[in-house]
Design a protein around this nucleic acid. Structure first.
Lengths: 241, 241
DNA sequence: TGGATTATTGACTGGCCGGTCAGCATGGCG
DNA sequence: CGCCATGCTGACCGGCCAGTCAATAATCCA
């Protein structure tokens, strides 16, 4: 051996790459810009990564893995596992806050991912992850239903989709904010909203309550419970954040 | 004059371009693939468009404009303007259905837009549009509050964000579905969910009701009403669909 | 210090593709 | 039929940039 390799090289490159990807998106990121920022040469980059895409994948996968760990690990979930009633809600809120804290820390990259990863390829990564999130939500709901936290007869599949979507939107908002929002307050309001609805006096149970409530099963695919149509105003939005 | 130009050329090219953009994303779409599918030459393409990006912009802008018209026009809104109580909810639901019908018709392109448009540039287009949607939602909510459809004291800004997000998610789901879902049923359930919440017996107003409810103003930015934190389970999700 | 060994560099290559334009095709007209 | 105006074509040009590798620098050891 004659010369010892720079142990920081890969880390530096990853950091620089993340910055450039965030700024330009995968397709428009130039390897030379990455290496310039890292103070390395182009050759050094290919010493550590197969290709530009490889670097991108490494960054995304690492972050998603950490986020996933945060999602279904975390001490708040330990507490939630044994809590009851309001304390349970509080524990679940703690968990939400943990997750969003992570999102805030990694907001630049999360923002990029929210925008399709800056390349048409790779969206599958994000989609898989989103699906995983929805799975976690669904489990939490099914489990909450058993404990009387949410009313029975809900279409778990649909509810989880809606909840994921709502939190997704909140996440996108947080991740773009200039100043860090009060996450606990924000998430608390979201939780409150979903628990109690937004209905006013004019709709006080004007709706027939849940009618049949077939199964509430978790099996995604076919919808479980079926209330009927009728409910609440709103527009829509097809695009991202 | 000696030769008459093909009057379908531009339409054919736009159709082909849309297909290719949907398949590959803007950055990876090749002009030659577009022209091949349209049965035209590369030159013909540049006879009608400044550049590849120009064609993309035309397609996106046209679609978003039509969607916008669908969003805040539509006969269902006429009805809603004079309806009361449950009939109003029904009218708003009709409107939702109209919008989602449009989304379904244009699902391929909408799917692309949801994924960031296949290019890091251009996401601003989609973002602007999303913001516009949120504005529409906010107006609907504020207006519904006046009629007692939703309870007073809600943080309109936050609620609109959450609703947009939830519907966004539903839209993404619809747009990817293999078979056309029963839109009316789906949207009806969403409406019902939001109006009545998902809370079960264990949380029956365990929450103190809205406490102060500062203003409920529309001025986004500072949150209006402030209940406290406490509420409901869930995970989170940072990415798209 | 000199030479061996390994890390690092950055000029260069090759392929790709957006955009151009000289020339060909088409069809009207005298 | 020959001529012209106009539209359409697709081979070509040039820029860009991912990825390579011969040359060079750094470090170790004797």
């Amino acid at each position: 051996m004659a010369r010892t390799s720079d142990p920081n090289a890969k880390v530096d490159l990853l950091r620089a790459a993340e910055a450039v990807f965030v700024e330009r998106g995968l397709d428009h990121a130039k390897v030379e810009e990455i290496t310039a920022r890292a103070g390395k040469s182009k050759g050094a980059f290919y010493l550590h990564f197969e290709s530009k895409e490889d670097a991108f994948r490494q960054i995304v996968e690492t972050t998603l893995a950490r986020l996933a760990a945060c999602l279904d690990g975390g001490e708040a979930m330990q507490v939630a596992a044994v809590a009851e009633g309001p304390a349970l809600l509080e524990a679940l809120l703690d968990h939400d806050v943990e997750v969003f804290e992570f999102l805030w820390q990694n907001r630049a990259l999360i923002r990029l991912l929210g925008g399709g990863g800056g390349s048409a390829s790779f969206s599958y990564l994000v989609e898989e992850f989103a699906e995983r999130c929805r799975g976690a939500v669904r489990r939490t709901i099914a489990w909450s239903a058993e404990r009387g936290i949410v009313r029975p007869g809900l279409d778990v599949d649909l509810v989880s989709r809606i909840l994921s979507g709502a939190y997704d939107q909140v996440a996108r908002h947080v991740v773009r904010a200039q100043r860090k929002p009060d996450l606990r307050r924000l998430l608390g309001e979201v939780q409150h909203l979903f628990m109690h609805g937004i209905g006013g006096p004019a709709v006080r149970e004007s709706d027939r309550p849940v009618r049949n409530a077939s199964k509430t099963v978790v099996g995604r695919g076919r919808g479980g419970a079926r209330t009927e149509r009728r409910a609440r105003p709103r527009k829509k939005e097809p695009a991202r954040s």
